[in-house]
Each structure stands twice: as C-alpha cells, then as structure tokens.
Amino acid sequence: MEAPRGVEVSATKGTMKISSRKDLQLESTEGEILLDANSIRLENLPLGIYSASTGEAFRKQVVYEVCVCPSGKMYLSPAESVSTCQAMSSICLWS
C-alpha cells in the first residue's frame, strides 16, 4: 500500500492479524515505528546461556532480558544486576 499522506488500517472491534510465511518487515524511512499496547508479546525468542566464566551457567533463572544482536536478531538472556547480553553470543553469530 502506498499513499501520499499515509495509510491507516484499523480494527475498531475484534482482532487484527498479520501473518507471513517468510519475513515480515516494518520500515520507517523518516520516522519511528511505535508499538502502543497494554502488553507487547515477543514469542518464541531463543534462549541464550550466559556464563560469567567458563563452566558457570545459570540454569534456574526466572527473569530474563531481551537482547538485540548487531544484525537485529533478538534473544533472551538471564537478567542480572548488569546486562548479560553479548554481541558475540552464539545466537548472534548464527544470524
């Protein structure tokens, strides 16, 4: 869809569902992408294993942080007092 002054798609009642067999890309060349809702769910994110030192991994973790690789791929990592996101995570390297 293209329009000289913008496009609005809304569902005043019920659900709006967008699905794609392959990639779904949202792009704003001069503005921002705003996700405005009471809750935003990111399902099926891979779980990265953080280890502060070799052989030390946290197995029973309840709280996670969302990490973003340089490629834009997202994954979960155990939350600590400082960030456990690692740009060299195996998840980032395989993106």
Rank of each mutant, 00 (worst) to 15 (best):
I33E: 03
Y50C: 01
Q25G: 06
S19M: 12
L35H: 06
L24Y: 04
E27H: 12
A57S: 10
S53N: 08
P46G: 02
M16G: 15
A52L: 01
K17A: 11
G55D: 00
I18H: 13
G31Q: 04
S39I: 04
T54Y: 03
T29A: 07
L26M: 11
L24I: 10
L47F: 06
G55F: 00
K22I: 02
R21Q: 15
R21H: 12
E56V: 05
I49N: 11
D36L: 11
I49M: 07
T54E: 05
N44K: 13
K17W: 01
K13Y: 06
G48P: 01
G48D: 13
K17P: 01
A52F: 00
L26I: 09
R41C: 02
S20F: 00
L24A: 12
K22A: 13
G31I: 03
E30I: 05
T15Y: 06
S53D: 06
Y50W: 09
A57R: 12
T29D: 07
S51F: 01
A37Q: 09
S28W: 02
S51D: 05
N38P: 13
A52Y: 00
D23H: 09
L47I: 07
E30C: 02
L45S: 05
E43L: 10
E30K: 14
S28C: 03
E32N: 14
A37T: 11
K13W: 01
A57C: 00
N44H: 12
D23L: 05
A52C: 00
G14H: 13
L24D: 03
R21G: 15
L35A: 07
L42W: 08
G14F: 11
Y50A: 09
D23V: 03
G14M: 10
I40L: 10
L34E: 11
G48V: 00
L45G: 05
L24V: 10
S28H: 05
K22N: 15
E56H: 07
Q25A: 12
K17T: 15
L34A: 07
I18P: 08
Q25S: 14
E32R: 10
K13A: 14
A57V: 06
A37G: 15
A52W: 00
T54I: 02
A37Y: 07
T15E: 13
R41Q: 14
L47D: 09
G31H: 05
L42V: 04
S39T: 13
S19T: 15
S19G: 15
I18G: 02
A37K: 11
E56Y: 02
D23Y: 01
L26H: 06
E43G: 14
L47W: 00
A57Y: 10
I49A: 11
L26N: 06
T54C: 00
S39M: 08
L24T: 15
D36I: 08
S19D: 15
I40N: 12
R21Y: 08
T54H: 04
E43R: 13
Q25C: 04
I18N: 12
T29S: 11
N44I: 02
E27A: 09
A57T: 07
M16H: 14
N44R: 12
L35Y: 09
E30T: 14
I33G: 04
L47S: 09
E27F: 08
